[in-house]
């Protein structure tokens, strides 16, 4: 299947590209847009972006593999990224990560078989005063911070997410 941005994403693509004196400069925001649009950054997506921006494929590959927010494998509908760096480690980040792992039955770096949840351990998210915390990326492209967490709050969040699972697309099926 040949990839194609939706009309809305195409508008965003054009806006992004118009901000820069050359196309290559638009690569990072365009890859972020592509991830929202296509669920994850597959080789096919990189190929499409290289073609759309008219930049070399190896340049796209190099950049896409350097930045950690760009998922080169499909993640779950809900990607929970737990900070465990420094202040979060001091304030219970690891305990919360373990709590999440227990609650979802997967380890950090894993995705459940239904592709509902992925947990990742990530580095400092600039939320040190409100640790422990995690960042949630959902497959509809939303990025949200959840801060000052404790087990009760985590339970609540997971419950809300479970309710939303049906309406979220599976990143594997997004292209």
């Amino acid at each position: 299947m040949a990839l194609q941005f939706s009309t809305e994403a195409e508008d965003q693509f054009q806006t992004i590209v118009s901000r820069y004196p050359n196309n290559l400069a638009a690569l990072l925001p365009v890859l972020m847009l592509a991830q929202e649009e296509f669920g994850w950054i597959s080789v096919e997506v990189m190929d499409y972006i290289a073609e759309r921006l008219d930049v070399s494929k190896s340049q796209v590959f190099s950049t896409a593999t350097f930045y950690t927010m760009l998922n080169k494998q499909p993640v779950g509908k809900c990607h929970i990224q737990v900070c465990t760096t420094f202040s979060c480690a001091l304030a219970g980040g690891y305990e919360m990560l373990e709590y999440l792992e227990e609650a979802l039955g997967i380890q950090a770096g894993e995705t459940d078989p239904e592709h509902n949840f992925t947990i990742s351990e990530v580095e400092c998210l600039a939320s040190c005063g409100t640790a422990p915390m995690f960042q949630l990326t959902t497959s509809d492209g939303e990025i949200e911070y959840f801060e000052d967490l404790d087990p009760d709050r985590v339970d609540e969040i997971l419950e809300d997410l479970n309710d939303r699972l049906d309406e979220l697309p599976d990143p594997r099926d997004m292209h």
Partner: peptide, 9 residues
């Protein structure tokens, strides 16, 4: 625990 699988990068 450093033995966990690497994150999906």
């Amino acid at each position: 625990d450093d033995t966990k699988p690497a994150a999906a990068e």
